[in-house]
Design a protein around this nucleic acid. Structure first.
Length: 491
RNA sequence: GGCCCCAUCGUCUAGCGGUCUAGGACGUCGCCCUUUCACGGCGAAAACACGGGUUCGAUUCCCGUUGGGGUCACCA
């Protein structure tokens, strides 16, 4: 039913040429349902680049009415704490990316990986290699010394004898040596690599544990993944992985390698570029829908559309329009988008978010102030900062610029305003009328009263409209704050 | 270094041979609105890396150069 809905929303026909071209014509009529997977490793945070890959993978599945699976690559036990795993799941939920079925854990499938390795040996597609790490290192260094590329040729590849008794061994794939391997990548297009470039990589370590290369292929197959959407740092791996798939005679998945996100200087996004984790952006006061929209537009486009809702994203997303070059992360644009979504956001929701940041406060008041506050913030922290004056306790902490506004002349004006205010009906228009009248009678511009008033009421030189401030604060508090500044002795 | 990939305003992108004196957005700079700051509105500057082809015609196709990126583990 989702599919039908999507087709109604879609404003233009889905091109999808690359997708349909890559599908087997004979099975096109009964096209297999799309199954994608997101496979992060628990590194302690959800990398913003991985999050985008996950987003693309999720959107592709949702667009095609397929399944989006989640697998945690936790084979590195040292790093795979429950806490690290929760960080990933939290980040995904926060972004609104759900997944179908249970969370898969790669570590749980280790017996199966070993089993496949054994089958590979039996099929003559893999072999036990008894080369020691020292021997490998020596060969590698020798190649380097001669400045020729190192390509392992293990004498155990075609050796039918059993190795030395009790000696440690690894299992290596008998990679094809002639010809070339071609991948029809949905993003990168046709990519070919000479098989001579591929060597006999390790499938099973000497301790019997599977390598990532083996595990990922087995899991993707067992989980029924049809479309592998991941960062293009894996493109080279794809050729090796395909060799395993072919050796096992399994259905070949379709690949889509998404370019990585770079920092503002064009280099791979790293810590020195600032925030890397999805949680960092959350803490910076970015709204999830803003990050969603930003990440979506980073490397993908849909005509001139900039503001794209979740529903539109699902309806519109395709791999054809994913760019092939890496894109740079632009905080300014994210902030701009975030400002937009803050202005769009529900006031009560924002009030709750702000309250989380400034402590136990009257969210009712906050929500009422929100329409004025939210136009002035690009992130939740700025929003919280802008709301501070509402809950400040008297006497106010007046900043330097605001204090400069409070001199003998302005105090005289303030006194007149104070009297007019005290007699006024406490609602926006009446207050404005009262203050304007004071200004007229004093022969000054409104600003000459409004600014000192702002300084007295908020302790700042910038704030929402002054009459809104008055209304929000209420008569008692407003008059008291003004009075505080009247008695202030000027030293 | 070998292999692979990429190349439109500062940034994200639209463009899939003529519609391009190249469109949108962020950022920047003006102006307007205005009690401040924002928001909003209007406007400006700003790009097809370079060189060869192919073609009647290239931003769009091909090759090369340059520049950038990725990857080369018993890590994932």
């Amino acid at each position: 039913m989702l599919g039908a809905l999507i087709h109604c929303i879609a404003p233009r026909p889905d091109k999808g040429t690359r997708l349909s071209a890559s599908q087997n014509p004979s099975s096109a009529a009964a096209a297999k349902p799309v199954v994608t997977r997101f496979a992060p490793s628990p590194t302690g945070f959800l990398h913003i680049g991985n999050a985008r890959t996950g987003l693309f993978s999720w959107l592709f599945a949702r667009h095609h009415g397929g399944q989006a699976l989640l697998r945690v690559e936790d084979t590195d036990k040292a790093r795979s704490t429950q806490e690290a795993i929760d960080v990933i799941l939290d980040g995904m939920r926060w972004l609104g990316l759900d997944w179908d079925g249970p969370v898969h854990f790669q570590s749980e499938y280790e017996p199966r990986h070993a089993e496949v390795a054994q089958q590979l040996i039996e099929r003559g597609a893999a072999y036990r290699c008894y080369l020691t790490p020292e021997e490998l290192k020596a060969r590698r260094e020798a190649a380097q010394a001669e400045r020729r590329p190192f390509r392992l040729t293990s004498e155990w590849r075609d050796c039918t004898d059993a190795g030395p008794e009790g000696a440690p061994s690894v299992v290596r794939l008998k990679a094809p040596r002639d010809g070339e391997t071609v991948i029809e990548d949905l993003v990168q297009g046709r990519v070919a690599v000479a098989n001579a470039e591929l060597d006999d990589f390790v499938l099973l370590r000497s301790d019997g544990s599977p390598t990532y290369m083996l595990a990922v292929v087995v899991d993707d197959h067992d989980m029924g993944v049809t479309h592998i959407i991941r960062g293009d740092d894996h493109l080279n791996n794809a050729f090796r992985q395909l060799a395993i798939v072919r050796a096992m005679g399994w259905d070949e998945p379709t690949y889509a390698h998404i370019p990585l996100i770079h920092g503002s200087d064009g280099a791979k996004l790293s810590k020195r570029h600032g925030a890397l984790g999805v949680h960092d952006y959350r803490d910076m006061g970015i709204l999830p829908e803003a990050l969603f929209n930003y990440l979506l537009r980073l490397g993908w486009g849909h005509g001139d559309d900039e503001i794209i809702s979740r529903e539109q994203a699902i309806a519109w997303f395709d791999l054809d329009h994913v760019g092939k070059s890496p894109s740079r992360f632009d905080m300014k644009k994210l902030e701009s988008l975030n400002g937009h979504y803050i202005r769009e956001a529900d006031d009560a929701r924002l009030a709750g978010l702000v309250a989380e940041r400034i402590g136990d406060v009257d969210t009712e008041l906050l929500a009422r102030a929100m329409p004025e506050l939210k136009a002035r913030a690009h992130d939740l922290n700025q929003l919280a900062e802008g709301a501070r004056f509402l809950f400040a306790t008297r006497p106010l902490d007046v900043d330097e610029q605001a204090a400069a506004l409070l001199n003998a002349d302005s105090r005289a004006l303030l006194r007149a305003a104070q009297q007019a205010l005290a007699a006024a009906n406490w609602e926006h228009d009446a207050l404005e009328q009262a203050v304007r009248t004071v200004a007229e009678e004093a022969g000054v511009k409104l600003g000459q009263i409004a600014q000192p008033l702002r300084a007295a009421l908020t302790g700042r030189t910038t704030s929402p409209g002054i009459f809104d401030v008055l209304v929000l604060l209420g008569q008692g508090e407003s008059l008291a704050r003004i009075a505080d500044q009247m008695v202030e002795p000027n030293a």
